[in-house]
Design a protein around this nucleic acid. Sequence first.
RNA 1: UCAGAGGGCCAGACGGCCGCGGGCUGCAAGGCGCGAGGAAAGUCCGGGCUCCAGCGUAAUAGGAUGCCAGAUAACGUCUGGCGGGGGUGACCCUAGGGAAAGUGCCACAGAGAGAAGACUACCUCUAUAUAGGGGAAAAGCUGAAAGGGUGCGGUAAGAGCGCACCGCGCCGAGGGCAACUCAGGCGGCAAGGUAAACCCCAUCCGGAGCAAAACCAAAUAGGAACGAUAUUGCGCGUUACGCCGCCAUCGUUCGGGUUGGUUGCUAGAGGCUUAUCGUGAGGUAAGUCCAAGAUGAAUGGUCGUCACUCAUAUUUAUAUGGGUACAGAACCCGGCUUAUCGGCCCUCUGAUAUU
Length: 125
Amino acid sequence: MPRSNAVTFTDKKLGSLKKRAEFLFVREGQYRAQGGIVIQMRKNPAHTTIRVGFTATKKIGNAVIRNRAKRRLRQLARQFLPQFGAVGYDYVFIARDSTVGRDWACLTQDTKKALKALYVLSKPA
RNA sequence: UCAGAGGGCCAGACGGCCGCGGGCUGCAAGGCGCGAGGAAAGUCCGGGCUCCAGCGUAAUAGGAUGCCAGAUAACGUCUGGCGGGGGUGACCCUAGGGAAAGUGCCACAGAGAGAAGACUACCUCUAUAUAGGGGAAAAGCUGAAAGGGUGCGGUAAGAGCGCACCGCGCCGAGGGCAACUCAGGCGGCAAGGUAAACCCCAUCCGGAGCAAAACCAAAUAGGAACGAUAUUGCGCGUUACGCCGCCAUCGUUCGGGUUGGUUGCUAGAGGCUUAUCGUGAGGUAAGUCCAAGAUGAAUGGUCGUCACUCAUAUUUAUAUGGGUACAGAACCCGGCUUAUCGGCCCUCUGAUAUU
């Protein structure tokens, strides 16, 4: 059976990062911290789709807090990555202390600004 | 009404919009239905299940448990009872076997601390205003603890020295399955305490865990299986005995570690209702229901209305703002422990008021 993320996606469906090695790979790329969110990005020549992963460390809180933060990040990714993400890049969304408590409207603005800034970096002159 | 004791339950509700993970159905588009907890937590006990060359019997070491009876698959859990302690009471607490098997410890103070003791005070004798001898455990002092308590008799002064009551120890008819209880009798009353100190006794216990384990696909060797020959003791298992297994050579066949996927994976010591047996934990029978299954890991995001509650303001009913815990399944059950905003219900006890 072929690996699901090896299939060439033509729609806007997002792939996901699953291995620790993949997260470490993205960490070496560009990053942008904005308000209640940190986004990392790196070009991955092996894929022609947008892939995304989520990180919430123990520094943020217990399991309930971390899961809640990841759900909000996942919701943000669904809303904005198909529109503002760069194809062929891997993204990692990292939760901060303020991710859970921050107003949802502010969080969406943070995400849009961060993604736009990173999109510019993905198209070097 | 106030104060308190025991037990049970809930864990904000509803609706838009946008989404997620399984299942069923459909050629497809889609449709239908399901989707966190009382602790899912800590991983502290007990099981099921899976694997590990072991299995049976016995023993050693180690660990756990420790009044009695019962419940249960099992337990260190639960139920009922007994003993001890606390409370006016409802009720609560209790590791509660053995100290004449042995070892250790009991500081300091104090005259004396375990077959105790004479410092002061007391009684008495001898010389005589002080010293010495004797009696004595009643008073003082010390201490956590001073070798039964109170009263009467008794005496030089005293003392279980004698007696009564209380306490204690031993025996014990009768009651109880048992722990134990107890009518009565006997003994003048003891060489203490500590075993969540070592220890002794009784009972129980193999280890690792779903990242267990099985299968499929890809890719590769030091291996694995079967058959034949060889038959020595060695190795594995904590040890001994018994049974069994492995071992060297040849031939044939198949293929580790790792990665991905599938199974394990949710119908079970299952929930609910009724009947019945039992003081109860629970047992039995009938009916009925199917209730998450992810794997960088779904069960959500956001907005609105209402509910509860807190603060502030005042027109005492509204406005504004805040809050609505602890916490997230990861193979599954039975418990224990810990965390928890706010609220509701039931039963019982004491006090006060009224009738």
